[in-house]
Nucleic acid binder design. Sequence first.
DNA 1: GGAACCGGGCTCTGCCATGGGT
DNA 2: ACCCATGGCAGAGCCCGGTTCC
Length: 408
Amino acid sequence: MRKTPDRNVMMINSGRTVLQRYLQQLIPMAARGLLHTKNSLLYNVNCFWLIRLPTEIVLRPVSSRRFCLKTDSAVAESCKENGILVNNLACMGVDVKMARRRQPGVLKKLITNEKGLKRFLQSKGATNEVIASIISRYPRAITRSYESLEKRWELWRSILMTDLEIVNILGRSPESFFRSSNNINMEKNITFFCSLGLTSKHLCSMLTRAPRAFSNKVELNKQLTDLLHEICLSLGGENPNDFVKHIISKNVFILLRSSKQVSANVEFLQSFHLSNEELLALLHGCGADILDLSNEYIKKNFTNAKEKLLSLGCTEREVDRFFISYPRVLFLSSKNLSDKIDCLLQAKIHIKQIVEMSRVLDISIGTVRSRVKELEKTSYDFKTYGIGILTLSKRRFEAKLEKLHSAQ
DNA sequence: GGAACCGGGCTCTGCCATGGGT
DNA sequence: ACCCATGGCAGAGCCCGGTTCC
């Protein structure tokens, strides 16, 4: 039995469960009985069931479609849906088709809290459009009780400053808030993250950027931090606690990855035959950036990029140095990286210059093209003056360009 | 003063699979 | 059989500016 955070909620939920099972059995029986006598009349009639719960009275209509006798399997499937719920949602602007595709079971439920959810979110400043979008994308949101929503919101507000920040996150990622109603687990996560030495500022950033991490079971988060702890110790690190805190604050998305993936990515970096000290420094620095990437993606990109660089005359050693000095290049898709290199070569930049200044691959192809074009007007020679100019920020580049023009 | 180095900011959801409960 | 909670994974960059070095 899954834990529910609140005793009252648990009672309501268990009451509902018993009642639901009872109704699920009762309604078809009633329907059969009624159909036997009033089949033709019932087809277009809305019938309301009065359901009394421990804390609330819900007037729940049952669609006449429930009594329809069509045999087509698709229609039979839709007959199981709570027609009035579906109508309610449609009236709220919910994309019912999307909701049905994502969580079909929710539309079959007899007891839901869509109106309560709407009131709750409205009171926090969410617009009707945002609420509809939230339910369309994560229909299970309407199964959360008011008490559970209040508690969860309170927990989120203990980290974030305003209701609006939470509304914005919900609008972006409804699943992260609604996927679990286990508020005790969320509390445990907050305590756990604090115990790692992460400050409220860190927690705020984590909840904003990777809210899903707070819905992970605390054991799962602990499993990952234990792995990081072990990695640090196995590499001779002296302060594993700081290492864990540093990696998480640097790349919070690591908490959304399995230990298996993170492990595989560390192994990938190990394949460059670095000393323990070097690998530790790499993980502490720019190596942390790529730990949350899909391992297959990293390997694929690495293989393709390596092939490309070797074909352009680079040595194995240069290639390895290139990736170690700037692992973030592995973020780039094979095609993007290849196109970028071609673009730089076309501008008469030598491959050795690119390999030595890998940061140049940080810039978008569009920016490279426009900057090369501007520099051509000033007869800028990359061989003589280097390619560092391409990596400047927009403001610095424009200032530099102005000077080049005035010097002409 | 200018170039090079470096760290950090923004961003990252939506879907499917699975195990367990009912 | 069905649903829920949760784990896992695919997807795929660019830019800015502070500090240090020469």
